[in-house]
Computed example of a mutant assay.
Amino acid sequence: MKNPQNLSLRSGGAAPLVETHGLMRRDAQRGQILLHPTDFALEAGQRVVLTGASGSGKSVFLRALALLDPPDGGTLLWHGQPITRMHIPSYRRHIAYLRQRPALIDGTVEDNLRFPWSLAIYRGSAFDAARVKSLLEAAGRGSDFLARDSAELSGGEAQIVALVRVLQLDPEALLLDEPTASLDPESARTVEMLIAHWFECEGAARATVWVSHDPAQAQRVGTRHLTMQAGVLSEASNTPSPSITATGAPQ
């Protein structure tokens, strides 16, 4: 078995938002190692971008980090503490995963944005119309967008809805699994700008891990670059140029 890849880059002080020690995944049927044992730490304020060939294990790692697929070895810590079964719903709220193709419910955009507040985990919180308006404005959408039927949205519009639905919940980190891979360039940049707006408004308490197959996008959205090859995660030798801001200017 390979030695764990040490990608902590600890900056001292508080514990990382998320930290793994020897995290690994196997194919349940073939026994093939999909993710070799890996040490990794995501600090508040980091914008991590992960690149690699198709099938190299990028999504496997991100889904394991999101606790969507159970690991076959290693440990995952949240603010320095192990995550018990009862803490998983809260963890997924704060360490939010966004996939490439969003899943929307039938109804309007507003129905979709209100849906999370019907779940038990969000009991005690409520839909914040002003917060949603601000996020939609950052994506170039007015209040009339709320009345649109979700079945009539374009791919880019559907991804905006899925993203706003997550961002309104105030996550600590976004795990972004190629969220713009199937979008046109204009829609992709809108999604990038919305995420930049969220990151900047929340400040250093937030972080992103963005899986991308687009080298130009990787340069725009990340300041720490990881690569994946045959299930082995490693730090890239070159650091991407400064990431974009909510206005599209270099940071």
Results as ranks from 00 to 15, higher is better:
residue 43 E to P: 04
residue 132 V to L: 05
residue 164 V to R: 01
residue 229 Q to R: 13
residue 62 L to K: 06
residue 223 T to M: 11
residue 115 F to L: 14
residue 75 T to R: 04
residue 102 P to T: 03
residue 223 T to N: 15
residue 150 S to L: 07
residue 96 A to E: 00
residue 47 R to W: 01
residue 68 L to R: 05
residue 77 L to M: 14
residue 103 A to G: 14
residue 136 L to W: 04
residue 45 G to N: 06
residue 154 S to C: 13
residue 175 L to D: 01
residue 37 P to M: 02
residue 205 A to T: 15
residue 59 S to A: 10
residue 61 F to E: 03
residue 81 Q to G: 06
residue 247 T to G: 11
residue 87 H to S: 13
residue 55 G to D: 08
residue 116 P to E: 01
residue 228 M to A: 11
residue 179 P to T: 07
residue 128 D to L: 00
residue 223 T to R: 12
residue 105 I to N: 11
residue 144 D to W: 07
residue 95 I to H: 07
residue 196 A to W: 00
residue 62 L to R: 04
residue 217 Q to P: 02
residue 134 S to Y: 09
residue 164 V to F: 01
residue 180 T to P: 03
residue 103 A to T: 15
residue 62 L to F: 05
residue 10 R to I: 07
residue 206 R to W: 05
residue 92 R to N: 09
residue 154 S to M: 15
residue 196 A to C: 09
residue 217 Q to N: 08
residue 99 R to K: 14
residue 109 V to T: 11
residue 221 V to P: 10
residue 17 L to R: 07
residue 185 P to C: 14
residue 45 G to D: 00
residue 249 A to E: 13
residue 138 A to E: 06
residue 237 S to N: 08
residue 22 G to Q: 06
residue 57 G to I: 02
residue 228 M to I: 12
residue 177 D to G: 05
residue 202 E to Y: 08
residue 196 A to N: 07
residue 80 G to M: 13
residue 37 P to S: 05
residue 250 P to L: 12
residue 11 S to P: 05
residue 180 T to W: 04
residue 131 R to S: 02
residue 146 L to A: 08
residue 76 L to R: 11
residue 27 D to S: 12
residue 79 H to L: 11
residue 159 Q to A: 14
residue 193 M to Y: 03
residue 237 S to E: 14
residue 246 A to P: 00
residue 234 S to P: 03
residue 184 D to N: 11
residue 6 N to M: 07
residue 121 I to F: 10
residue 11 S to W: 10
residue 136 L to E: 09
residue 103 A to W: 14
residue 137 E to I: 04
residue 195 I to P: 05
residue 95 I to N: 04
residue 205 A to N: 11
residue 239 T to G: 01
residue 16 P to A: 10
residue 201 C to V: 11
residue 7 L to V: 07
